[in-house]
């Protein structure tokens, strides 16, 4: 599956572990089993997002609780696409003010835990951090680290459900089940349009099979005549009525980043 710019948010921390994926089956082939066809859709979506090189953008996160109280977070991120291994990312927090300048560096990995470092300006020191748990909320939002993390094809098993209209488009609806431990979900249902294989909606079901959240991705823009990015992602938590809106701006591709821009020393100097 492709959560393109969840992956980009992930820009912040845990982007796709980009192993080279070739579609083994045609997603439109109705003779495939539901499992094979579901996986074929995810592989096709993933394949179409490869080759962007590097990118940077600004992300604004608006959080609204059930009582309508709002607050915002802002950060910048840059990503370096890596062949045969996970991408590297740096995220820098700009708002709120007390975390301004806090920066994280993530070297995503396919099957092993990511390597992560965090620079805290209040101490002027870097610490390597690790976590076994990705189901906790990210920055108090309705997105969990799991939502933002590596969405490799291998992390799920799939089941093709149906094809149905989604707005003016037609969508493949695919159910996917986490194949990794400690997921907060029992399953996710994903809507991909049949033209570009962009993700439009994801429903998340908790471990008790109750609908937990719905993610809607919209305002897609195409960059370099190939790469689609949603400018707006809205996650609604049905159990708490809280919602989080992510908006992106200032996308730049192929800026010319190198590996040296993504090491621990770079983390210390980035502002």
């Amino acid at each position: 599956m492709l959560l393109p710019r969840i992956a980009v948010i992930a820009a912040s921390f845990f982007l796709l572990g980009h192993t080279q994926v070739q579609a083994q089956n045609d997603p439109m082939d109705k003779s495939l089993s539901a499992e094979a066809r579901g996986k074929a859709v995810a592989e096709e979506a993933y394949r179409r997002d490869r080759g962007f090189g590097d990118e940077e953008a600004t992300l604004t996160m608006n959080l609204q609780d059930a009582r309508g109280r709002e607050r915002s977070r802002q950060m910048r991120f840059r990503t370096l696409e890596r062949e045969h291994e996970g991408d590297w990312m740096i995220a820098v927090f700009d708002n709120p003010g007390d975390v301004r300048g806090t920066a994280s560096l993530t070297h995503s990995k396919a099957l092993e835990p990511d390597d992560q470092w965090l620079f805290l300006p209040a101490t002027n020191r870097v610490r390597r951090i690790a976590s076994n748990n990705k189901s906790t909320p990210f920055m108090g939002s309705e997105f969990s680290f799991e939502d933002l993390s590596d969405q490799q094809v291998e992390k799920y098993t799939y089941k093709y459900l149906r094809q149905e209209p989604c707005g003016e488009l037609s969508c493949h609806v695919v159910e996917q089940y986490p194949a990794y431990e400690h997921s907060g979900y029992s399953r996710q249902v994903v809507w991909y349009d049949t033209n570009e294989y962009r993700t439009h909606k994801v429903e998340y079901y908790d471990r008790r099979e109750r609908l937990l959240k719905t993610l809607t991705m919209s305002d897609y823009s195409q960059f370099l005549d190939k790469y689609w990015r949603p400018m707006r992602l809205e996650m609604v938590n049905h159990q708490t009525s809280n919602r989080t809106l992510l908006t992106y701006s200032g996308y730049q591709f192929q800026v010319g980043f190198s590996e040296r821009d993504f090491d621990v020393n770079a983390l210390r100097s980035i502002r």
Binding site: F13, F93, P96, D98, V99, T102, S104, Q116, L118, L120, P121, A122, T123, R127, I129, A130, S131, N132, N133, K134, T136, P137, F138, M139, G140, F145
Partner: peptide, 11 residues
């Protein structure tokens, strides 16, 4: 604030 961010990011 930065400790709390670190805490969240570390799981």
């Amino acid at each position: 604030a930065q400790y709390l961010l670190m805490y969240e990011m570390s799981g």
